[in-house]
Simulated scan of single mutants.
Amino acid sequence: MTQVMKNSIPWPTIMVVISWYTSNIGVLLMNKYLLTNYGYKYPVFLTMCHMMLCSVFSYVGISVLDIVPLQSVQSKNQLLKICGLSVVFCFSVVCGNVSLNYIPVSFNQAIGATTPFFTAVFAYAVSRKREAWVTYCTLLPVVAGVIIASGSEPSFHLFGFIICVASTAARAFKSVLQSILLSSEGEKLNSMNLLLYMAPIAMLVLLPATLLMEGNVIRITIELAGEDFRIIWYLLLSSSLAYFVNLTNFLVTKYTSALTLQVLGNAKGAVAVVISILIFQNPISMIGMLGYVLTIIGVILYSETKKRYT
């Protein structure tokens, strides 16, 4: 039996999945710690740091380490499409980080699980893409679970909830736009090359937003580093994890499949909920937990119907 398991799931695949889980959950917990427990309330600047290090690591990974072949931008039109995706991407990540100021990671993840619902809505609204009626039915428990969890969430914060929903919707909108805008053979970019071009653009978009919304954050961070140098290590760790989320996401798809990635993602959300509750000790009601479970069941059913009817 052990030999069969070894043959079925190679060790590189297991290590990639573990790394993906670690980086995904790690960046969430690190951001939550920075923004609330540590008191570093600058989510826009934090996101800009993420994009800055993603730009550097993407260049090193592709141009120096040759993790994947470099794909060049073919036209000005393609560059404009990438810029549009970068703006939506920025909005999604910033909103996600802002929401962590107000709601616990567990609730953030429950809301994030509704991504398939928003993806289906935007796919129909933008390109009139219809799913099987059974697929739409599976989205009902996804939404119902979040409604139940929201109604009984002890740490519920209306603004945090709205901004987290906005982040989830923007993430779904980006995936739909990406599939439409970069659909032709000459314009397709793998996720690592897309990040290589998107991260610097996102950084340029976030710089004026940071200066406008968070004022003297750079001076404040330098002064804070003089008192407590750990803040630099925290920012570097958070930003590094943000890059490795994208890298391991790509590697999991490479070693397995897009569908496996989706299934593993469902389980990741549940693991993140449990770990965040254990670490941050945020209160959660039994009804709220049932809401989370209902949402996860809905997402699993959605994945299964997509696999069957696509």
Results as ranks from 00 to 15, higher is better:
3 Q>V: 13
7 N>G: 11
7 N>F: 10
11 W>L: 15
13 T>L: 08
28 L>N: 14
30 M>I: 15
36 T>H: 10
38 Y>A: 10
48 M>C: 09
48 M>I: 04
48 M>W: 08
49 C>I: 09
49 C>H: 06
49 C>A: 14
50 H>A: 08
52 M>T: 15
55 S>R: 04
56 V>A: 13
61 G>Q: 01
67 I>K: 09
72 S>F: 02
76 K>W: 06
79 L>I: 04
80 L>F: 13
84 G>R: 11
85 L>F: 09
87 V>D: 01
94 V>C: 02
96 G>P: 08
97 N>I: 02
98 V>K: 02
108 N>M: 10
113 A>V: 04
118 F>T: 07
123 A>H: 05
126 V>K: 15
128 R>G: 12
128 R>F: 12
132 A>H: 15
142 V>R: 02
147 I>R: 09
151 G>M: 10
156 F>A: 00
162 I>W: 15
162 I>K: 08
165 V>R: 00
183 S>G: 07
187 E>F: 05
188 K>E: 10
189 L>P: 07
190 N>C: 12
194 L>D: 03
198 M>H: 06
211 L>H: 09
216 N>C: 03
217 V>Y: 05
218 I>Y: 13
218 I>Q: 08
221 T>Y: 05
225 A>H: 07
230 R>V: 06
230 R>T: 12
231 I>V: 11
234 Y>L: 13
253 T>L: 11
254 K>C: 04
260 T>N: 14
263 V>Y: 11
265 G>F: 01
266 N>I: 03
267 A>W: 02
268 K>M: 10
274 V>A: 09
277 I>D: 05
277 I>K: 05
278 L>Y: 12
279 I>H: 03
281 Q>F: 05
282 N>D: 14
288 G>E: 05
289 M>L: 12
293 V>L: 12
294 L>I: 14
297 I>C: 08
299 V>D: 03
305 T>W: 00
307 K>N: 07
307 K>G: 00
309 Y>L: 04
